[in-house]
Design a protein around this nucleic acid. Structure first.
Length: 319
DNA sequence: GCGTCCAGGTCTACC
DNA sequence: GGTAGACCTGGACGC
């Protein structure tokens, strides 16, 4: 347990439209930084690593979607220097999607027969990300070749046993483990403790690669061309085409068996007979249709399945 | 109760 | 360069 007793208050002014509620607590249940964060009406308590430092966060909205304002309270173990604090604030704003102008995506979406519904339903929702690729990469590995129920069990166990606990503002929030923490453990131990099966060796090998060879941060990957970033991600153990599209901060169109059913119905009016065999075809169609906005299109669609099912009179598989 | 199949992919050996 | 088969685990299903 790490006590974070040093705190700093400041305001974040996101680029409008920005819905705080939809962005920090996404309709499909995707967490902001960790599955163990706590919500209370217009406030979220969460924790993550900023500039490599464990940080507790209390975030509230005092604005509106059209005129957004986030009141942030940052909790740290020891006082940082002014330069480091400034970098952490900037990184947090970026990770919250506060600096992202989504107006171009909205212009495309308004003309699209599927997306026009999603941007009405989820107006102002922004994409969010972590400072390093490790949490998303772990998530992607734990989603592979299993049911959602078991993925969630593996994820909870991994974070519960190996993630650091941040204590601040009367809350205790556990965060995704860092690669440095994971390299202390063997694949056999992880397989036994959290029943990760063959995924355990991917988790350990990935952590070892990141610690030993280093790897660009999310911000550094964003500075590369999208395909260059993806090529680097594909070199990592346990990361294939689908996982790379989840992890890539440029976004991708991460089609797996589950989403192939959904987008198959949306594109062609019916679920593919063989989901796995149709992945390539459906992925190509999504990329053709939405281009550089493919990730945002994917993101908005999967957050809005319930409403889309009703509006398009198409039963979409929620889980 | 037991055997088989398969689930929100990736890797490797083989051709 | 393309592709079949193996890979942990546990729930669903048929018998």
């Amino acid at each position: 347990m790490t006590k974070l007793s040093c705190s700093f208050n400041y305001d974040i002014r996101p680029v409008a439209p920005y819905s705080f509620g939809l962005t920090v607590r996404k309709p499909a249940g995707w967490s902001l930084f960790t599955p163990f964060e706590v919500y209370d009406k217009r406030t979220v308590w969460t924790a993550t690593h900023l500039q490599g430092v464990l940080a507790g966060l209390k975030l509230s909205s005092t604005g509106t979607t059209g005129k957004p304002r986030i009141v942030a309270k940052l909790f740290l173990r020891i006082p940082p220097g002014q330069v480091l604090l400034g970098r952490m604030k900037k990184e947090l704003g970026h990770n919250l999607g506060a600096d992202e102008d989504i107006s171009s995506f909205y212009r495309l979406a308004r003309k699209d027969s599927i997306l026009k519904h999603t941007v009405d339903d989820l107006y102002g929702m922004h994409n969010t990300e972590s400072s390093t690729i490790f949490p998303d990469a772990l998530l992607a590995i734990l989603l592979q070749m299993t049911t959602m129920k078991r993925s969630n069990e593996m994820m909870s166990c991994l974070i519960g046993k190996y993630g650091e606990m941040a204590e601040f503002d009367g809350k205790r929030i556990r965060v995704w483990p860092t690669p440095e923490r994971m390299v202390r453990h063997s694949a056999a131990e992880l397989a036994r403790a959290c029943k990760l099966g063959y995924r355990a060796k991917h988790v350990v090998n990935l952590a070892r690669t990141l610690v030993k060879e280093g790897f660009p941060t999310t911000e550094e990957l964003e500075a590369l061309p999208p395909e260059g970033a993806k090529a680097l991600l594909l070199e990592l153990p346990g990361i294939g085409d689908y996982s790379a599209d989840i992890v890539n901060p440029h976004g991708g169109f991460p089609i797996d068996v589950w989403s192939a059913d959904i987008f198959g119905k949306l594109f062609y009016g019916r679920e593919p007979r063989n989901g796995r065999a149709s992945i390539e075809r459906i992925k190509k169609e999504g990329m053709r249709r939405w281009g550089k906005w493919s990730w945002m299109a994917f993101f908005y669609t999967v957050q809005d399945l319930d409403s889309l099912s009703r509006k398009l009179e198409t039963k979409l598989r929620i889980t």
